[in-house]
Amino acid sequence: MHLVLKQPSVLPGFGLTLGFTLFYFSLIVLIPLSGLFVKTSSMSWEQFWDIVTNPRAIASYQLTFGASLAGALINGVFGSIIAWVLVRYRFPGRSLVDALVDLPFALPTAVAGITLTSIYASNGWIGRYLEPLGIKVAFTPLGVLVALTFIGLPFVVRTVQPVLQDLDKEVEEAATTLGANRWQTFRAVIVPELWPALLTGIAMAFARAVGEYGSVIFIAGNMPMKSEITPLLIMTKLEQYDYAGATTLGVVMLVTSFVLALMINILQWWSGARHMNQ
């Protein structure tokens, strides 16, 4: 097998740019991350395994990854609807709504956390109406979900929006003239076009949620075994000068995130490779 690394191109600089890419990537990403592993390796396997499988840690993984995934999926649905409305309809205030979508990007996460907490607390604007229904949001895992959904929204909207914009309206019309009803047109024509972008958006929202700290700690209540996220657990360990313990949990998060990102990439490649190899 012959591996072609370089194809003739009108623009020179393949060696230079690849070299720079590797150097920069090492400096910014690889070296700090490998520090994590080096620090962790100062422990024995038993110690490592004890920390990793500690029930409190396991509960925190479940909450972190579970709420992140749920939040990303919720964003997948509602973010797509928002993107659809923004692209397909012209209404007064559209550009305002369009700008508001970016707010979770720009807002300091602590501010978002405090705001969400005050709204969803039992005496807050929304919380007071949910309280009689028996739904408690603030200081419960549900609060974590709300916070993680909030911060992930722009990722889905902003990845789906350009694809929707480029979507050829004639393709939908073609489906309609062939007798497809609205649902069939949506499912058979629009969803396959959106799917790769939607997956990217969900993956990014998920990745962002897994790493989120600032907004969650205010609304979560941080009760061990119940509403404590892994990043907070890491923070707690750091405050107790348990660096090895903190990095151990860091390694768990890193590996899990990497595996999930890889899986999403494979899924994307698989759904994209079936067509559009233009």
């Binding site: 050829d168 004639e170 393709v171 019309e173 073609a174 489906a175 309609t176 003239t177 062939l178 007798g179 497809a180 009803n181 058979a188 024509v189 396959p192 076009e193 079936r274 067509h275 559009m276």
Partner: peptide
Amino acid sequence: RISERRVGFVFQHYALFRHMTVADNVAFG
């Protein structure tokens, strides 16, 4: 409604479903 008119429409820019094979495109209707 469009679907009740039994009208075939051919577009200038083809408007084919690009994620479907040729056979699936033809079979769509």
